[in-house]
Every structure is written in structure tokens, then in C-alpha cells.
Design a protein around this nucleic acid. Structure first.
Length: 205
DNA sequence: AGCACGATTGCCT
DNA sequence: GGCAATCGTGCTT
């Protein structure tokens, strides 16, 4: 695997561009001397103050979403439904409070530790359990051991960071975002992106 | 202080 | 397909 880390200028660009470019990249989390690695196969863009699905819609600025108002390339991690975490990457080059939700990863390295986080289980996984390791925003946080203690973490660093991929990634699919029924006109915006041939996406559209 | 709700998931019919 | 779990957050009283 080539080891080219994504730097600030990658994240500090227009959010839809960053979202699509994130597909295929490797997400690394160093935990207890081990590198957990997943390849990004599905994302959603949240485009700030004019996007009714976005936490910063209308300029809303609270302790929870404060990090979105800062520099690009930091982690925005929040609790959803009282049970799961969602991992986002802050984007944009104009100080706009925007981010990309990472929705699914292909497991690459550190499978044992991933299943420990997901299933509290060691040993062999069924084919179905392996496919379900990281194929959803809540699931990938469990598997990658990401939680709210990582909110605000700089991804241009050595704890959680991203690496360039070495190969082309194939066809990118575009679709409306998932579970944002409340978002009125933004419900249909085509801001979900995923790899057409990946078995590890959260759901087919 | 109270309360409605969610960028999800897993289990049920 | 439906729906409960579970609690921090943000808004209202």
C-alpha cells in the first residue's frame, strides 16, 4: 500500500468534490499500537447553512457542531439515536460549516479488533457478519473504535488519518441521502456517493 | 426542568 | 415491511 497521507489542502475544498474524492481512500485508526484500516466505499455530503439536512442549517452553531465551523480536516463525531456514533470529516475552503459523513468501509486490516468492537466476539465470522462489519455509519464507528472522544481530532495527524489509494476505484454512483425525511426540499439532493461495485455499502438504492 | 427527536441498527412479523 | 432501543442535545416552559 502506498503511504501518502491526505493533507489539509485535500479537505479544504468544495464539499461535493471532497466527498467524491474520499471514495477509495484508506481510513486508518491507530489503536493500542495496531493499525485498523478500512477503505471508504460510501459517503454523504452535508453542505452547511443552506442544507436543511445539515446540523449547521440556518447557521445553527451549538457545542455539538462547533467543530464544523473550524478548519477543514478535523473529525466531527456525534451520538445518534442515543446509541451510535457517526464519523464525519469537516470540509470546505471558505469557513462554511460543512462536512462529509463516512457511511461505509471495506475492512482491510485489523479484522480481529474490528469484530471485537462490533460483536464483542473473537474467532471466525460468518460471511454475513464480515460483510456487516463496517457497512453503515454506526457500524463503522463500532468496528473502527471511533467514538465521541475523537470529536475535534485533527485528521492531519498520526492517530486517525487518511491515505491515498493506489488504484482507480471504478464507477461512482450518485443518490439521495438516507434517513433525512425531515429535510424538506433537500430530501432529494443527490449528495450520497458510493462505489458501484462494492459489496460493502450500507444499502443499495 | 421538561420534552421531543434523531445523518441507526437489529429484531420481529 | 414495521418498530423498539436509548440518551445527549437543543429548544421550550
Amino acid at each position: 500500500m502506498v503511504k501518502i497521507k491526505l493533507e489539509r489542502d485535500f479537505y479544504a475544498r468544495e464539499t461535493l468534490t471532497v466527498a467524491k474524492d474520499l471514495l477509495g481512500k484508506y481510513l486508518i485508526h491507530r489503536v493500542a499500537g495496531e493499525e485498523l484500516i478500512g477503505q471508504i466505499v460510501e459517503v454523504e455530503a452535508y453542505k452547511g447553512i443552506h442544507d436543511k439536512a445539515c446540523h449547521s442549517y440556518g447557521g445553527r452553531r451549538t457545542p455539538r457542531n462547533e467543530i464544523m465551523y473550524g478548519v477543514a480536516g478535523k473529525a466531527y463525531v456525534y451520538l445518534i439515536y442515543g446509541m451510535y456514533n457517526c464519523f464525519n470529516i469537516v470540509t470546505s475552503d471558505k469557513g462554511n460549516p460543512e462536512a462529509v459523513l463516512i457511511r461505509a468501509l471495506k475492512p482491510i486490516q485489523g479484522i480481529e479488533k474490528m469484530q471485537q468492537g462490533r460483536y464483542k466476539k473473537v474467532g471466525n465470522l460468518s460471511k454475513q457478519q464480515f460483510k456487516n462489519l463496517l457497512n453503515g455509519p454506526g457500524k463503522l464507528c463500532q468496528g473502527m473504535h471511533i467514538n465521541r472522544s475523537h470529536n475535534g481530532l485533527d485528521l492531519v495527524g498520526d492517530k486517525i488519518y487518511l491515505l491515498e489509494q493506489e488504484k482507480t476505484i471504478g464507477e461512482i454512483m450518485t443518490a439521495p441521502r438516507i434517513n433525512i425525511d425531515y429535510a424538506e426540499e433537500a430530501v432529494h439532493y443527490p449528495w450520497r456517493f458510493y462505489l458501484a461495485d462494492s459489496p460493502f455499502i450500507s444499502r443499495s438504492s
